[in-house]
Design a binder for these strands. Sequence first.
DNA 1: ATAAACCAGTTTATAATATAAACCAAATAT
DNA 2: ATATTTGGTTTATATTATAAACTGGTTTAT
Lengths: 93, 93
Amino acid sequence: MKELDPILHSQLRLAVMSILMNVEEADFVYLKEQTESTAGNLSVQLDKLSSAGYITVTKGFVGKKTRTTCQVTEQGRKAFEEYVEALKSYLNL
Amino acid sequence: MKELDPILHSQLRLAVMSILMNVEEADFVYLKEQTESTAGNLSVQLDKLSSAGYITVTKGFVGKKTRTTCQVTEQGRKAFEEYVEALKSYLNL
DNA sequence: ATAAACCAGTTTATAATATAAACCAAATAT
DNA sequence: ATATTTGGTTTATATTATAAACTGGTTTAT
């Protein structure tokens, strides 16, 4: 049986990646809303995805307010697709 | 975003369920081989699946040797299918 | 017959992970 | 001016996964 990438096999990280796969970029607040996670949890999981090289996290400003935006990297995209393939073998899809 | 049943969202438990979905029954030794898990880990995860009502575990004998066989329950089958549906929304399938 | 190795597991200790609570700095509202 | 909200991060705690150590019985070798 194939290994399931432990970085992706986590509800919240998978949800984040799933969103990022479909948009150009998404910011912290949006991801928090969509995933219904707490800020702390999201912050930690974004760090992990970032450390793994699956996403880039950019801190900027919109007016005077900070804005943290995330994008999936090519590596992240590939990892996500491999994860999907691996999962299929478990799900009989 | 849908919740991912935490009992199923675990590599080893999912692998076990995946196997059991396709066979009438499977014994401990077979599951251990197929999943390449350690006996201890498998034992613990089978307990969890059993406590959740997703599988039944039956201890019998074949000659003088003990034999632990597992079967997925109707509840387990349903949970697995719901898990697959939930996951699809994450994977864009 | 007895010890050594083996098989089929279970129990328990440890490592890893996820999650939320507590915190912080800056901006806005009162 | 100070209280509240916003947008996070850090840290402590709860949960989970995993393997190591153990058990009870069996077969094999001596």
